[in-house]
Computed example of a mutant assay.
Amino acid sequence: MANNKKLVPEATDALEKLKYEVAAEEGIELKDGYNGDITARDAGKIGGNMVKKMIEYAEKHMKDSE
């Protein structure tokens, strides 16, 4: 069973903003609220690019702190 508990609840708003930014960059229109009608391919593009951006952000900030 999946655990959907947020490890950092304060990040919820930032993740939502990132989701809409990535969707716009990919040309995928999201509406406020439920978006369960988008294709799995589009959802994967959004999620994959969100992870990519978060990794890039973490790598940049880890490098800056060295």
Rank of each mutant, 00 (worst) to 15 (best):
D37V: 10
N49M: 04
I38G: 01
M1K: 10
G27T: 05
A43T: 05
E16Q: 08
K31G: 11
K17V: 06
A14S: 13
N49V: 01
T12H: 13
G33K: 03
A43D: 06
E26L: 15
E25T: 02
D42R: 01
G47M: 11
E26Q: 15
T39N: 04
A58T: 10
D32H: 07
L30T: 05
G27C: 06
E66W: 01
G44S: 11
A23P: 02
T39Q: 05
N49H: 14
A43H: 02
H61C: 02
G48K: 04
K45G: 01
G44A: 11
E25Q: 08
E10P: 01
G36P: 07
I28G: 05
K63G: 00
M50K: 03
K5R: 14
D64G: 06
D42H: 06
Y57F: 15
G47R: 09
D42G: 02
E59S: 04
E56M: 14
K31I: 10
K31C: 01
K52G: 03
I38V: 12
A14L: 04
K31Q: 11
Y34Q: 02
L18I: 10
V8H: 09
K5A: 15
E16I: 02
D42Y: 01
K17N: 08
I55Y: 08
K63W: 00
K63M: 05
L15S: 02
E56I: 09
G36I: 11
H61Y: 15
G33H: 05
A24V: 03
V22Y: 04
V8M: 09
D64C: 03
L15Y: 10
S65T: 02
A23Q: 03
L7G: 12
P9Q: 12
Y20N: 03
K19F: 00
P9D: 12
A23I: 03
K6I: 12
G44V: 10
E66K: 14
Y20Q: 04
Y20R: 10
E59K: 09
I46V: 13
A14G: 05
N3L: 14
G36T: 07
S65H: 04
K63N: 08
E25P: 00
D37C: 04
I38K: 02
I28K: 04
R41L: 07
M54N: 08
D37S: 14
P9F: 11
P9V: 13
V22H: 06
K45Y: 06
I38M: 10
E59A: 06
T39G: 14
H61S: 03
D32P: 09
G27Q: 02
G44I: 10
Y57N: 08
D13N: 10
N4L: 15
L18N: 05
D37G: 10
A58C: 08
K52I: 08
V22G: 03
E25G: 02
S65G: 00
A11Y: 05
A40I: 08
A2H: 12
E66H: 07
K63I: 04
